[in-house]
Amino acid sequence: MVEQASVFKRGVERTPALYWAVCVCVCATLLVGSRPAQAEDFDSVFQRGLSLYQKKDYAAAIDAFQAAYKVRQFPRVLLNIAQVYRKMGEAAKALDYYEQYLRAEPKMPAKIRHDVEQYVSQTKALLAATSLQDEADRRSEPAPLGFDKQTGNALPGYVQGFESRQKRKKALTIGLIAGGAAAAVILGVGLGVGLHIRNKLPDGLVVFEY
């Protein structure tokens, strides 16, 4: 048994492609099987962020939005964090979150894109001038996009569309991983077969042990 185990180990060591193929397959299966378990907490945390924002408790609002983003990675949350930072005069941080948002949400509605681009321009100007705009100007700006200005609730159409896109994206990711794993396994087995054929000793060969 010990000898067999050592032979298997040697075999795996000598066929790294097969070894990695098996690893990739296992990882893919684990990824496919995993599910976020705390999606229901997002709304309450997000609402708390909006409420704090309206109360001008910007630091607490940022904490709440970041907590919400940990639960669900909606790009819109990044935009809200950027907006709050801009309100706080933290131009560099605001710009960082605007850029994160633009990367995470490349296909946003045209109006939102227009608004975001305006905010980015303003923030860059702020950063260049090294001075913040007048507090009153900032306070007159609209509430975060995608949410009801009066109630602070998320607008249903925006959230549902976003979730639909997220599901499609996840399905595509799973498909790619599974397909890659399958390809790796096929490659590994093929490599194993090739090595087997190449290393097979001639039938009837007398082998002297060392």
Partner: peptide, 21 residues
Amino acid sequence: FSYAGLSRIATVATAFLFSGC
């Protein structure tokens, strides 16, 4: 893909390894 399927694939591959590789 399931763990059982992966196990079968690994078994087949290992059989090739044992047989001379």
